[in-house]
Design a binder for these strands. Structure first.
Length: 274
DNA sequence: ACAATTACCTGTATGC
DNA sequence: TGCATACAGGTAATTG
């Protein structure tokens, strides 16, 4: 579901709505509207406005409304769709926008109600404290090698946990942290500052390709993620270790092990990942 | 500043 | 079938 590739896949689909004028808006469920944004305020901001562009910062989806940004943090079970008929039960809809001359509407939903909708007027998003202190996005030019290397210093926690820290790199969650450690041949439990310079380079070089490929395939549908078109992603078929406990390692055939790191399921090959 | 833990919610899968 | 339990992709707040 919603790590960087999933949100990027949604963003690409939503570009179909760029330039369209919003007509009717329905905002429901107070709880997901964060800060001083209320359902009523969201409706008045959006109604009659034009969706300039759809962007992404890490795992956050950002809708450009000209005078500000409507930000959606999907968290665990958020879904975003731009479709004619939304397959998600109406009970879970949080925000629905209809557009002039378009058959599709935009649906933001959240089963577990952990998702959050924000409104920000800042021009720069994610580099400041408007949505969160976000590290560089691996699909952007900001993701340079030196900055990446520097983040390992003075940190002793498990490498996988740090990879999931949004202030370090924006967009990596549990699935892709597991996959990245496997592809780089690094034990996810290794203390961060003991990861060698050569290994840091490997992580840095592999990450953008991993995320790009997953986004191109519509992301990973683990339990119930669907993309902006309502269809499941396909990248889960290519998972090497994630959710594959006891399956043979795709590289050496040893059974994949599962351990818990900072309360998250962690999968790795004890042979290939040193 | 960092690390570890907890809370937030609801649905689904599993085992008894 | 009913019930208890564990677990799920994320983030923010709290404590040490």
């Amino acid at each position: 579901m919603p790590e960087l590739p999933e949100v990027e896949s949604i963003r690409r689909h939503l570009t179909e709505a760029e330039g369209a004028q919003i007509t009717d808006v329905e905002a429901c469920d107070d709880e997901v509207f964060a800060g001083d944004l209320s359902p009523d305020r969201a409706e008045s901001i959006l109604s009659g406005n034009k969706l300039r562009s759809v962007e992404r910062r890490g795992k956050y989806l950002a809708l450009n409304l000209g005078e500000g940004w409507l930000i959606y943090s999907l968290r665990m079970t958020g879904k975003v769709m731009f479709v004619e008929d939304c397959p998600v039960d109406e009970t879970y809809w949080k925000l629905v926008c209809h557009f002039r001359d378009l058959d599709q509407s935009l649906y933001l939903s959240s089963v577990r109600r952990l998702s959050r909708i924000y409104w920000h007027e800042d021009r720069e998003l994610g580099t400041q404290e408007n949505i969160a202190r976000l590290g560089p996005d691996p699909l952007s030019d900001d993701f340079d090698r030196d900055t990446f290397h520097a983040c390992f210093e003075g940190r002793t926690g498990p490498i996988k946990t740090i990879l999931m820290d949004q202030g370090f790199v924006a967009g990596v969650g549990n699935i892709y942290a597991n996959e990245l450690c496997f592809l780089a041949g690094i034990d996810p439990r290794r203390p961060c500052d003991e990861v060698t310079s050569e290994e840091r380079d490997r992580l840095h070089d592999i990450l953008p390709d991993l995320l790009k490929r997953a986004a191109d395939m519509g992301g990973s549908s683990f339990t119930n993620f669907v993309g902006g078109d309502g269809e499941a992603g396909r990248y889960q078929r290519e998972h090497r270790v994630y959710d594959r406990e006891d399956d043979p390692c795709p590289s050496c055939g040893e059974p994949i092990q599962r351990v818990t790191l900072s309360n998250r399921s962690t999968y790795f090959c004890p042979e290939c990942q040193a």
